[in-house]
């Protein structure tokens, strides 16, 4: 028995060391790992802060019938409510609608008594859901770009403008350490494949509200995010909303779709150079088009959508000066 006790700490140490190494390799750099640690710690802290569990009444409106569910304050999410209804509700629901007008993430805890509707892509007026989908696509594009580029490419995510489906493409603005990158077809296809891989992983979008200091700590290695943070937090009473998908963390106002698996067909159509940045880097606008899973479109029709997504998206560019403060709110 004593021998086992002597051996186990050594074994345990080597195991944890190995685990850390593998984590490093998985995250590809320590910056992302640090960011994730901070996120997890803060998430844990916020969960523990709930303290004594209180009950709330959630009135669910919709099929198969209206019911009242007794849930836990600040713990239960709309997804948990869906789990009480059926497996189909869990699988299909993309976004929740709280009190009939507030779009609510599926994995965001409910703070109070409310009415709840579960939305999917085929409700009669899917305006809110479509917007959330487009925003999530931009977010996922950021994650895909981060996965696809090697460290030598010096990729830095800048921001993504507010979702505008009518523009025909979702957008993510990035800064790259090259002034003359013109993506070839195989490169774009690789980026699209990266998006599909991300979708297949079925990561859920985790939402977290953090204060400005923590946000600055989290994004201390990202020059552009640090620049944006003060204006974002001042708009939102010193609060910043960040989302995590797998290991990718970014700032966004949300709401987002429930899981990455709702992304069906996806094409990264083009990357346009917007402006030079410093003496080595340049700002690029990467854009693509996507459909939710379960939406089947004839390939000719989808081809026209791809064709349109190749044109430069007219959304506000990051190198343009801020005219009004209202533009900042559109960034996230």
């Amino acid at each position: 028995m004593s021998a086992v006790r002597q051996i186990t700490p050594a074994l345990w140490n080597s195991f944890t060391k190995w685990q850390k190494l593998s984590n490093l390799r998985y995250f590809s750099n320590s910056v992302i790992e640090r960011r994730n640690e901070l996120f997890t710690e803060e998430q844990k802290r916020q969960r523990e802060r709930v303290g004594r569990i209180e009950k709330i009444e959630v009135r669910y409106l919709g099929l198969p019938q209206d019911v009242t569910l007794v849930m836990n304050r600040d713990i239960s999410t709309p997804y948990n409510c869906a789990q009480h209804l059926s497996e189909g509700h869990c699988k299909r629901s993309v976004l929740a609608l709280v009190d009939g007008n507030v779009a609510w993430d599926m994995h965001r805890p409910l703070p109070d008594n409310c009415t709840l509707q579960l939305l999917n892509f085929t409700v009669a007026d899917p305006h809110v859901v479509n917007k959330a989908f487009w925003r999530s696509c931009s977010f996922m594009l950021g994650a895909a770009l981060q996965n696809a580029f090697k460290e030598e490419a010096n990729l830095q995510l800048h921001s993504f403008p507010g979702p505008n489906i009518k523009s025909g493409s979702f957008v993510h603005d990035v800064v790259l350490g090259s002034k003359t990158w013109e993506p070839s077809k195989p490169e774009l296809r690789a980026l699209s494949a990266e998006m599909i891989k991300l979708a297949a992983k079925d990561h859920k979008f985790e939402r977290l509200e953090i204060n400005n200091e923590l946000a600055l700590e989290m994004f201390k290695d990202s020059h552009y995010k640090r620049e944006q943070l003060p204006s974002i937090s001042s708009q939102n009473q010193g609060c910043v909303v960040v989302y995590r998908l797998g290991t990718h963390i970014d700032i966004s106002r949300g709401p987002m779709i429930a899981s990455s698996r709702f992304l069906g067909k996806c094409t990264i159509a083009a990357a346009h150079k917007l402006a030079d940045e410093g003496d080595k880097d340049a700002i690029y606008r990467v854009q693509g088009v996507a459909l939710p899973s379960g939406f089947v479109l004839n390939h000719v029709a989808y081809g026209t959508l791809e064709e349109r997504a190749r044109k430069l998206n007219p959304a506000r560019q990051p190198n343009e000066p801020f005219e009004e403060l209202s533009h900042i709110s559109q960034m996230a």
């Binding site: 489906i165 939406f295 089947v296």
Partner: peptide, 20 residues
């Protein structure tokens, strides 16, 4: 999927048509 013009693919197609 074809009648409701608010579905995402219909919005995209309508806008593409207008653009054209």
């Amino acid at each position: 999927f074809s009648q409701n013009r608010n579905y995402i693919h219909n919005i995209l197609l309508d806008e593409a048509r207008k653009d054209y």
